[in-house]
Deep mutational scan, measured.
Amino acid sequence: MATGGRRGAAAAPLLVAVAALLLGAAGHLYPGEVCPGMDIRNNLTRLHELENCSVIEGHLQILLMFKTRPEDFRDLSFPKLIMITDYLLLFRVYGLESLKDLFPNLTVIRGSRLFFNYALVIFEMVHLKELGLYNLMNITRGSVRIEKNNELCYLATIDWSRILDSVEDNYIVLNKDDNEECGDICPGTAKGKTNCPATVINGQFVERCWTHSHCQKVCPTICKSHGCTAEGLCCHSECLGNCSQPDDPTKCVACRNFYLDGRCVETCPPPYYHFQDWRCVNFSFCQDLHHKCKNSRRQGCHQYVIHNNKCIPECPSGYTMNSSNLLCTPCLGPCPKVCHLLEGEKTIDSVTSAQELRGCTVINGSLIINIRGGNNLAAELEANLGLIEEISGYLKIRRSYALVSLSFFRKLRLIRGETLEIGNYSFYALDNQNLRQLWDWSKHNLTITQGKLFFHYNPKLCLSEIHKMEEVSGTKGRQERNDIALKTNGDQASCENELLKFSYIRTSFDKI
């Protein structure tokens, strides 16, 4: 039985969820670079991206490699990797027998973001014989899940209580170790020597080791999670996991709180800001991140802002960003909400898709409305799209047979046209069989910064309504002859009103 693990408890099935942008060198404390989270699957090609990484700022997932063999891993080693800020997950990587050479110096898994409450997941690794993470000293947050690894031993010899604050939620089941077939031998045991430290858990006094050649490092209890030197002297209180010299914040392997210019500090002093819960960055760093993602459509890219001495992905609820200094300031009234469309555009074809934009005031991208039916549609669209004030790209209304009016965009005031449909149009209306009105132009103002209007096959939309939009939106004169079809717009509506004058002759039985 794995020490510190839980057996036999019912657990939810383990679901495996399925960018080499360097964020800056980590400095003297770390020998390499800070790398983003990685999802490495199918083959070993991307694994080489770990070569210079000291910190993975995010998670590391290595999974679904069915053609790899043990010899493929023999020359692979990433000794610079010290810390993973989120979680480490391995799933069905064939041929991998140990992690001792792959990650010989991995010391800390912070667990800032977890995989279903777990910071370390080893699942269905069919050839893994031992973990071998002999320098792993601290899992700051989260638990361990090690399950269905039929060859995995050296679990009962690990004292997880020396690595985690609590072992109650560890789930370590259905491994070879369960069948008591392992016969784990710690260093020196074969020669009758006791080389590794022994600890007591559940009444068992057991030597602690990761492999037959690597003991588990056990520091004096007084050192807590700070770690200790090879001689057993406690590291500085700002260290986490390990250090090369005692009581020196510049000799830590990793930091308990924050890293700044080669030393570990309790908090980031001005003019620095907390970033990702582990390091200090200056304003320029946060500003660069903001600008890199301002026009990016890459998933996970955030326009970072500053709030409460932190550089964070977005302002919290009730705050909006001051564009001059990136500071989050309290909103006066309802907060603006910028919604970034991942692929640059979004099609609204149902109430469900409209709900995804609920509360958005600025759309960074283009909207395509293609709704053919739905219950209580006008009210639903207004509830979900009615706060949109600005669209950076274009607005396209296409084959939306259920629409009679666009009044559900009740606050839309600006279409920038930074991206144009077919390279020309910022407003595009095609084949809307029941569209009769755009907006009530006596109450609604709309500016279209650039781009043209396109109207074709809107049989109940009168040309007068379209011409009014040209005047109000500032697009009059931009359109070419064929942009607004004269014969297919309003051709099934009563669009022309003329005053009919009647004269009559009164007659009676005795007068003409």
Results as ranks from 00 to 15, higher is better:
191 K>T: 15
227 G>V: 11
216 Q>G: 04
75 D>I: 11
216 Q>M: 15
49 E>D: 09
276 Q>R: 08
99 L>I: 10
143 S>E: 07
128 L>S: 01
218 V>M: 09
320 T>A: 08
62 I>M: 06
178 D>P: 06
185 I>Q: 13
177 D>Y: 05
48 H>P: 05
178 D>Y: 12
336 P>W: 10
194 T>F: 14
100 K>S: 14
278 W>R: 01
299 Q>N: 13
330 P>I: 10
197 P>L: 10
88 L>K: 00
35 C>S: 00
155 L>W: 11
205 F>R: 02
328 C>M: 02
104 P>T: 01
249 P>C: 03
173 V>M: 05
168 E>F: 07
288 D>H: 07
53 C>G: 00
111 G>V: 00
268 C>S: 00
282 N>W: 02
282 N>E: 07
74 R>W: 04
120 L>Q: 00
335 C>M: 03
306 I>Q: 04
34 V>A: 13
237 S>E: 14
322 N>Y: 06
38 M>R: 04
101 D>T: 13
35 C>K: 00
307 H>N: 04
217 K>N: 15
176 K>M: 12
120 L>A: 11
332 L>C: 07
333 G>A: 02
122 I>N: 00
241 G>K: 05
105 N>H: 03
44 L>H: 08
186 C>R: 02
153 C>V: 01
258 F>D: 01
159 D>E: 12
49 E>L: 09
94 Y>A: 08
82 I>H: 06
191 K>R: 09
271 P>G: 15
178 D>Q: 13
280 C>Q: 01
45 T>K: 11
75 D>S: 10
251 K>M: 15
46 R>C: 15
66 F>V: 13
96 L>K: 01
61 Q>E: 08
322 N>G: 09
256 R>A: 10
270 P>I: 14
328 C>S: 03
179 N>H: 12
307 H>L: 05
132 G>T: 02
123 F>P: 00
84 I>K: 00
40 I>Q: 02
115 F>C: 05
336 P>N: 11
101 D>E: 11
34 V>K: 13
45 T>P: 15
239 C>Y: 00
239 C>L: 00
89 L>H: 04
297 R>D: 15
87 Y>L: 00
197 P>V: 06
310 K>G: 14
32 G>K: 05
43 N>A: 06
64 L>R: 06
136 L>A: 01
50 L>R: 02
120 L>S: 00
36 P>Y: 11
116 F>R: 06
84 I>E: 00
258 F>N: 02
295 N>F: 11
90 L>F: 07
233 L>C: 01
249 P>Y: 03
182 C>K: 14
244 S>L: 05
125 M>Y: 00
150 N>F: 04
114 L>Q: 10
275 F>V: 03
58 G>Q: 00
133 L>M: 04
145 R>S: 11
147 E>F: 09
41 R>K: 02
135 N>C: 05
50 L>V: 06
316 P>I: 07
63 L>Y: 09
157 T>D: 12
298 R>V: 11
273 Y>I: 03
121 V>A: 05
158 I>Q: 07
261 D>V: 10
239 C>I: 00
303 Q>L: 09
178 D>T: 11
122 I>P: 06
43 N>C: 01
229 T>N: 14
218 V>L: 12
65 M>T: 03
311 C>K: 02
227 G>D: 05
82 I>W: 13
60 L>Q: 00
38 M>W: 02
193 K>M: 13
210 W>N: 04
75 D>M: 11
328 C>T: 03
189 T>V: 10
215 C>N: 14
240 L>M: 07
89 L>K: 01
163 I>P: 00
66 F>R: 02
29 L>W: 11
312 I>F: 01
324 S>V: 15
301 C>N: 02
211 T>G: 01
258 F>I: 02
55 V>I: 13
248 D>A: 05
231 E>W: 04
55 V>L: 03
282 N>T: 07
177 D>P: 15
115 F>L: 11
210 W>E: 12
159 D>R: 06
332 L>M: 13
115 F>R: 05
54 S>V: 13
236 H>L: 01
212 H>C: 15
149 N>W: 01
271 P>M: 06
234 C>W: 01
302 H>M: 05
255 C>L: 00
302 H>R: 06
60 L>N: 00
254 A>I: 02
209 C>N: 05
67 K>A: 08
328 C>E: 01
74 R>P: 01
38 M>N: 11
315 C>Q: 04
227 G>E: 02
120 L>N: 01
121 V>C: 10
150 N>D: 06
97 E>Y: 08
200 V>L: 03
31 P>A: 03
286 C>W: 03
131 L>P: 01
216 Q>T: 12
157 T>R: 13
285 F>P: 01
284 S>E: 15
202 N>Q: 10
45 T>V: 12
304 Y>I: 03
117 N>S: 08
225 S>P: 12
217 K>T: 08
275 F>M: 04
81 L>G: 00
72 D>H: 03
239 C>M: 00
161 S>E: 13
98 S>Y: 04
165 D>T: 08
85 T>H: 04
311 C>Q: 02
277 D>P: 02
53 C>R: 00
300 G>Q: 06
138 N>S: 15
227 G>R: 03
198 A>T: 10
